[in-house]
């Protein structure tokens, strides 16, 4: 099949950029470990309250792990438990969340902490909270009539 000379340049440029783009994304993912939340642990969604760590929602300091704090969140229509998460600035935090009923979202607005919460699955994301402030957490997956009222707060504070 014949390609026009300019079309060859155009396609070479386009495909070249595509390869560079995919390489960068791939290196970020597989070398730097920057994956979107893809945890694979499951849970009985009807017994979330009885199963650790969700029997004790909140922020917990942990030792001997790759992260300093675990922020455990239970979502259900139409609220998050606990309503406020407080972590010291600079801490490496693992967010661990699940849903007790329908699909919810867990988005810390204005950051890249953003994961789907699905009944039966535990969602996890590890990140360093490097800026002091109050961050709104919103449900970004339609979950019913109270969806837009479903929110909580992440407070990143100076260490005491």
């Amino acid at each position: 099949m014949h390609l026009h000379k300019y079309e060859k340049y155009w396609l070479a440029f386009g495909v070249g950029s595509l390869i560079v783009f995919l390489l960068i994304t791939g290196i970020m993912a597989f070398h730097n470990g920057s994956h979107p939340p893809s945890a694979k642990n499951t849970i009985n969604y009807e017994k979330v309250d009885e199963i650790a760590p969700f029997n004790n929602p909140g922020v917990h300091k942990v030792e001997g792990k790759d992260w300093d704090y675990e922020a455990v969140v239970v979502a259900s229509a139409f609220y998050y438990d606990p309503p406020i998460l407080e972590v010291p600035v600079g801490a490496k935090v693992k967010f661990i969340a699940t849903s007790k009923d329908v699909v919810h979202g867990f988005e810390v607005a204005g950051t890249n902490i953003n994961m789907m919460l699905e009944p039966g699955y535990i969602s996890e994301y590890v990140t360093t909270v490097d800026k002091v402030g109050e961050y709104l957490i919103v449900c970004n997956e339609y979950c019913g009539v109270g969806h837009a009222q479903m929110h909580s707060m992440l407070k990143v504070v100076e260490p005491k």
Partner: peptide, 17 residues
């Protein structure tokens, strides 16, 4: 700026953002 899709109007408890 973080505004979710598929949501009715809400002031999200008066949050600044």
């Amino acid at each position: 700026l973080g505004a979710p899709r598929r949501s009715a109007f809400s002031d999200y408890g008066g949050a600044d953002i």
